[in-house]
Amino acid sequence: MPTETAYAKLNLALHVRARRADGYHDLESLFAFCTDGDSLSAEPRDDGELTLTIEGDFADDLDPGDDNLVLRAARALQAASGTMLGADLVLDKSLPIASGIGGGSADAAATLRLLVRLWGLRPMDIDFPRVAASLGADVPACLGSQTMFGTGIGERLEPVDLDLAGMPVLLVNPLVPCPTGPVFRGWDGIDRGSLDPQEWRRGRNDLAAPAIALVPEIDEVLAVLKAQLPSLARMSGSGATCFALFGSEAERDAAADRIEADHPDWWTLATSLR
Rank of each mutant, 00 (worst) to 15 (best):
residue 48 G to Y: 04
residue 29 S to L: 09
residue 24 Y to T: 00
residue 29 S to W: 02
residue 37 G to D: 00
residue 48 G to L: 07
residue 16 V to Q: 02
residue 16 V to N: 04
residue 50 L to H: 06
residue 40 L to S: 05
residue 41 S to N: 10
residue 28 E to K: 00
residue 35 T to V: 15
residue 26 D to Y: 07
residue 46 D to A: 14
residue 20 R to N: 06
residue 51 T to Y: 11
residue 18 A to G: 11
residue 46 D to Y: 14
residue 22 D to V: 05
residue 34 C to F: 11
residue 37 G to S: 06
residue 36 D to Q: 13
residue 27 L to Q: 01
residue 39 S to E: 14
residue 24 Y to F: 11
residue 16 V to A: 02
residue 38 D to Q: 09
residue 32 A to R: 03
residue 30 L to P: 07
residue 28 E to P: 00
residue 27 L to W: 02
residue 31 F to P: 06
residue 41 S to C: 12
residue 31 F to S: 05
residue 21 A to Q: 13
residue 32 A to Y: 03
residue 28 E to Y: 05
residue 27 L to P: 02
residue 38 D to E: 07
residue 21 A to D: 15
residue 37 G to P: 05
residue 44 P to T: 09
residue 20 R to S: 04
residue 15 H to K: 06
residue 20 R to M: 00
residue 34 C to S: 12
residue 20 R to C: 06
residue 42 A to S: 09
residue 27 L to E: 08
residue 31 F to E: 04
residue 27 L to V: 05
residue 15 H to F: 04
residue 35 T to I: 14
residue 31 F to K: 03
residue 14 L to N: 06
residue 31 F to V: 09
residue 26 D to F: 11
residue 52 L to P: 02
residue 37 G to T: 00
residue 54 I to E: 05
residue 52 L to H: 00
residue 54 I to F: 07
residue 48 G to V: 00
residue 35 T to E: 15
residue 46 D to G: 14
residue 49 E to Y: 15
residue 26 D to E: 13
residue 51 T to A: 12
residue 30 L to T: 06
residue 51 T to R: 12
residue 49 E to W: 14
residue 52 L to Y: 04
residue 20 R to I: 09
residue 39 S to K: 15
residue 42 A to E: 02
residue 24 Y to Q: 04
residue 21 A to W: 12
residue 30 L to C: 11
residue 14 L to G: 04
residue 24 Y to L: 03
